[in-house]
Amino acid sequence: MKHRLTLDYTLGEGELAPYLDGLRRGTATARQCRQCDRVTFPPERMCSCQTGNNRVATFDWKALDGKAEITHRTDGAGGAFALARFAGADNLAVCRIIDPTVRGNQARLHAADGDLPGLAIEILGEAIETAR
């Protein structure tokens, strides 16, 4: 029995809208906890400083300069991805590397494209020849 299902979602961006708007423009919009100043990019919805009580964490949006340092990287047939820390952020971000042929640890945010609206970075370095 064959059956085909095609789905076309419209996802409500809710309180993450400023972050996602920033990605579309190529700007890093982080969240900063008003209680402990922790800065997260990608943004957290709850700050760990509020774990011990029932208060809802409150945040401000904070612009980062978009520069990042790659801490770990993986390459494969489906592209390259990294754990990277954006300057000014206290957490790490999972990022798609725009051009996997480029090596280096320093990177900057790249504007997201329509099909992949998540975090993408371009590495500040030179392309190298690869076997693939």
Partner: peptide
């Protein structure tokens, strides 16, 4: 919303 929308696969996340 974040990791998934980068296009990352389970294998790549486990690899990291």
């Amino acid at each position: 919303w974040t990791d998934g929308m980068t296009g990352i696969s389970a294998t790549a996340l486990y690899a990291l």
